[in-house]
């Protein structure tokens, strides 16, 4: 798994070393918006944007950054891109900015971005670091979208705001509230880990 080819990186970030169900990173900020597919997509796209540019910047500047202030400067870089995302949303997608509230700002403390900047961008070239950012973000995105899919479908009967289930369907209120996100994520991890353990046993 030490092969740094783009394909291997893709496989790692999407499955074998998935930030959510293997590394258990970065669940903070985004679980909150997973009761709604539209918000989830927007948040994760924002996250991918920040991850890609942070990795790029850190990779380009890695030889200039002194070790002592490494973490705080990385945080500054992340904050910079998040602010850009926030400003862009406010100006060009005000409705979205209104519905996501403070959760956009919380992308800054998302451990995945910091984690990848530290673990990857610090020791790799700019282009491959950008790729790592994209794939980590995608690995993050697909898991959350599945959780959001279940939560929105069972909790509201809609997908992306469009009513899908028949009117007779009684929504599962629990899916709308916090505990369901934990249960679904826990179950997801269970399934993924069981599959991986079986693969290893062969």
């Amino acid at each position: 798994m030490n092969d740094d080819s783009p394909v291997q990186i893709l496989k790692n970030n999407i499955w074998y070393s998935n930030p959510i169900f293997i590394q258990i990173l970065g669940i903070c900020s985004t679980l909150a918006v997973t009761n709604n597919l539209t918000n989830t997509v927007i948040m994760t796209v924002g996250l991918i944007f920040v991850a890609v540019f942070t990795n790029l910047t850190v990779s380009l500047l890695k030889n200039l950054i002194p070790r002592k202030v490494r973490m705080i400067l990385q945080t500054l870089i992340i904050a910079f891109y998040v602010i850009i995302v926030d400003i862009l949303l406010r100006a060009y997608l005000p409705e979205v900015s209104k519905s996501l509230g403070p959760y956009v700002g919380l992308i800054i403390t998302n451990c995945i971005i910091m984690g990848r900047a530290e673990a990857f961008a610090q020791s790799h070239g700019p282009l491959i670091s950008m790729w790592d950012g994209v794939t980590s973000g995608l690995g993050y995105m697909w898991v959350l979208m599945i959780i959001a899919f279940v939560r929105e479908l069972m909790g509201f009967g809609t997908l992306f705001g469009i009513t899908v289930l028949p009117a007779g369907f009684t929504p599962w209120t629990i899916m709308v509230m916090a505990p369901s996100a934990f249960f679904l994520l826990g179950t997801f991890i269970w399934v993924a880990k069981t599959i991986i353990l079986r693969q290893e046993a062969k």
Partner: peptide, 11 residues
């Protein structure tokens, strides 16, 4: 086995 660790913690 699959549930051990983070799985059961989250539940």
């Amino acid at each position: 086995a699959g549930l051990k660790g983070p799985g059961i913690t989250l539940i």
